[in-house]
Nucleic acid binder design. Sequence first.
DNA 1: ACGTTATCGAACATGATGTTCGGTATGATT
DNA 2: AATCATACCGAACATCATGTTCGATAACGT
Lengths: 183, 183
Amino acid sequence: MDRRQQRTRDAIFKAFRSLLEKKRYTHISVQDIVDEANIGRSTFYAHFETKDELLKAMCTEIFNHVFSEELNSEETHDFSKDNKSIAPRLTHILYHLKDSEKNIAAILSCESGELFLKFFKEYLSELFSQYLPETKANIPVDFVLNHLTGSFTEAVKWWIANRMKNTPEEIVRYYTEVRFPDF
Amino acid sequence: MDRRQQRTRDAIFKAFRSLLEKKRYTHISVQDIVDEANIGRSTFYAHFETKDELLKAMCTEIFNHVFSEELNSEETHDFSKDNKSIAPRLTHILYHLKDSEKNIAAILSCESGELFLKFFKEYLSELFSQYLPETKANIPVDFVLNHLTGSFTEAVKWWIANRMKNTPEEIVRYYTEVRFPDF
DNA sequence: ACGTTATCGAACATGATGTTCGGTATGATT
DNA sequence: AATCATACCGAACATCATGTTCGATAACGT
C-alpha cells in the first residue's frame, strides 16, 4: 500500500477518533473529519464512500487487532475437545481490550458502539458455543448463548465505563461468580 | 391540549413509526416524516425542534404507557419490606411490552433503540435494587445491578427478535433459571 | 529519472435543514 | 351563532452537508 494512502487513512482514523470523543457520531459530518484530518475533501471520498463505511472499517481494524492473537490460538488448540476453562481466554480478551483502551472508549462512547459490539458478540458467541453445557431445563440454546455473550458484554461495558480501573482478572471473576440472587 | 395539536402529533408519531420499520433512524429525514404524515413542514418544527427530540418524546410516551400500571403498583406496595418474588413483576412488565409490540419493535429495530433501552435499564435498575441480596464475594453492587438489568434486557431483546413467540412466563423462567455453566 | 497515482482545491448539482410570514381553517369560549 | 385565539399551511429563503468532477501538483515505487 502506498505510503500516502496509509498516511491519509491514519489521519482520517485519528481525526475520527478525536471527534468521537467530542461529539456523537450522528452529528459528525464528513466536513468535520476532513477539517480535523487536514486533508482534501475529495481525498476522503477516495478512501471511503460514506461515513458509515469509515466506521465499519475502523471497527473491523480494531476488532482484528484486539482478537488477532486470540483467534490464532484457536487454530492451534481445539478447545471443544479438552476441558480447559474459558476464564483465561476471557481474561486474555480483556487484556487486549485494555491495550486498545483509547480506541475502544471512543468507539463505545456513542451510539455507533453498537456496530463494534455486534462484531464482539458474534465472536463471543463462537467462543462460548465451544463451552456450552448440555441443554438444561428446556431453555433454548440460543437463549443461553445470548445470555452469556450479552451479560459478558455488559460486564465489559461496565468495566470501560469505570475507566478500566479493575484488572481483567477481577472482571472475569465478577462475571464468573455473579449469580442471579435467590429470590 | 388542542385537538389539532393532538392530531398532528399522532400523525407525526404514526409516520415516524411507519418509517422506522422501513429504514434506519439516521437515514430518515424530517422531510420524509412530513411527507409521510402529510403535514406542513413548518408544522413539524412547531412541535419538535429536531428529529432527536421527536425520538425522545416517542420513547418517553411509550415508556410511560408500558410502565404506568407497574409504576403505580410501586406506590401502593413497598416491595422492599416484604419478601415477594420479583418474577411476577418481571412477567407483568413483559405483558405490557407485548401490548405495545408494534411500537417497541419499531423503536428497537434500529440504533435509536439505545435511547429506549436507556430508559428501560434505568427503570429496571430501581426495580432490581429493591431485591438485591447482601453483597457477596466482594463484587461491587453496581456491577451486580448492571449484570441483572443488562442480562434481563438482553433476554427481552432476544424475545422481541424472535417475534415474541414465547410467553412472558417462559421468558422470565428462562431468565430466572439460566445459570452460568460450570466451566 | 520516469511513469504512476494519490492528493489537492475549486467548482458544481442536489437535497436537507431550520426559519419566516401572511393567509386560511379549525377549535375553544361565551 | 359569533368571536377570538391559534394551529396549520405552503411557499420562499439562507445555510449547510453531500457526493462528484477535473486539471494541476506533488509524492511515491521501481
